[in-house]
Amino acid sequence: MSLYIAHFLMKEENASLSTQPPYDVNRREKRHFIASHLFTASDAEAAYDRAIGMLPGLSDANHDGPGDRTNVEPVGIFDLDEVFVAEGQVVTGLSQPYGIDVGVLFIEELLCQRTRTKQELTVFAGPRDGRAEQL
């Protein structure tokens, strides 16, 4: 089994509702963020299928009090990549004070990008050079 990381582009919508019927929306705010999930799969196709299967479970909604509602939903898979680690180093890395660094996504760069098609995802980008990164 290989280790994969999926970066999901998420939309969060906060709505302030009137506390009396008909509960009209007084104010609405939207923002986007990236949710990253690390998981195992047998190959790139299986990783893609698993990431697609995660999408419905990433939706959520909550009420923090009267007149407040927050909806979170996935827009799509922003990126999917195989993670190369030295064998036996994952457990050691996870126990370190800051865990395993899985990379950074710059929000400014994301603002002008759209979610990608399956063929544009990193894991389907073509042959690798074969080197595994060490932790």
Results as ranks from 00 to 15, higher is better:
69 R>L: 15
135 L>S: 02
29 E>P: 11
72 V>G: 02
29 E>W: 12
27 R>C: 04
10 M>Q: 07
8 F>V: 02
70 T>D: 10
6 A>W: 10
41 A>Q: 01
100 I>E: 00
49 D>V: 06
55 L>C: 05
78 F>A: 02
11 K>D: 12
62 N>W: 13
116 R>K: 10
34 I>Y: 07
22 P>C: 03
104 V>G: 06
126 G>C: 08
90 V>H: 00
102 V>A: 06
4 Y>C: 02
63 H>A: 14
109 E>C: 11
105 L>S: 04
82 E>S: 01
42 S>L: 06
120 E>D: 14
62 N>Y: 13
55 L>G: 03
7 H>E: 15
112 C>W: 08
33 F>A: 07
57 G>E: 12
26 N>Y: 05
44 A>R: 04
103 G>L: 06
21 P>L: 04
26 N>M: 08
26 N>R: 05
51 A>K: 05
53 G>R: 10
130 G>L: 06
94 L>N: 00
48 Y>D: 00
82 E>F: 02
114 R>E: 15
33 F>P: 05
89 Q>H: 09
106 F>C: 08
109 E>R: 13
20 Q>C: 03
52 I>G: 05
96 Q>V: 04
54 M>L: 12
17 L>Y: 05
34 I>Q: 11
27 R>A: 09
125 A>F: 03
57 G>L: 10
111 L>N: 08
101 D>S: 07
13 E>Y: 04
79 D>C: 01
106 F>T: 12
134 Q>F: 09
41 A>H: 03
52 I>E: 14
42 S>K: 08
74 P>C: 04
110 L>A: 06
35 A>R: 15
20 Q>T: 08
127 P>Q: 14
69 R>T: 13
36 S>N: 09
109 E>S: 15
68 D>I: 05
74 P>E: 07
65 G>M: 07
92 T>V: 00
88 G>N: 00
19 T>A: 03
103 G>N: 07
10 M>K: 07
105 L>M: 11
23 Y>G: 03
19 T>K: 08
7 H>N: 14
131 R>I: 11
118 K>M: 01
93 G>H: 00
99 G>Y: 07
37 H>T: 08
54 M>I: 09
52 I>Y: 09
120 E>K: 07
88 G>T: 00
135 L>Q: 01
23 Y>H: 08
77 I>Q: 03
55 L>T: 04
78 F>I: 04
76 G>H: 01
67 G>S: 02
121 L>C: 12
6 A>Y: 10
106 F>Y: 14
1 M>Q: 08
134 Q>T: 11
6 A>P: 14
83 V>N: 04
10 M>R: 03
114 R>Y: 10
129 D>N: 15
28 R>Y: 08
16 S>A: 10
29 E>F: 13
132 A>Y: 01
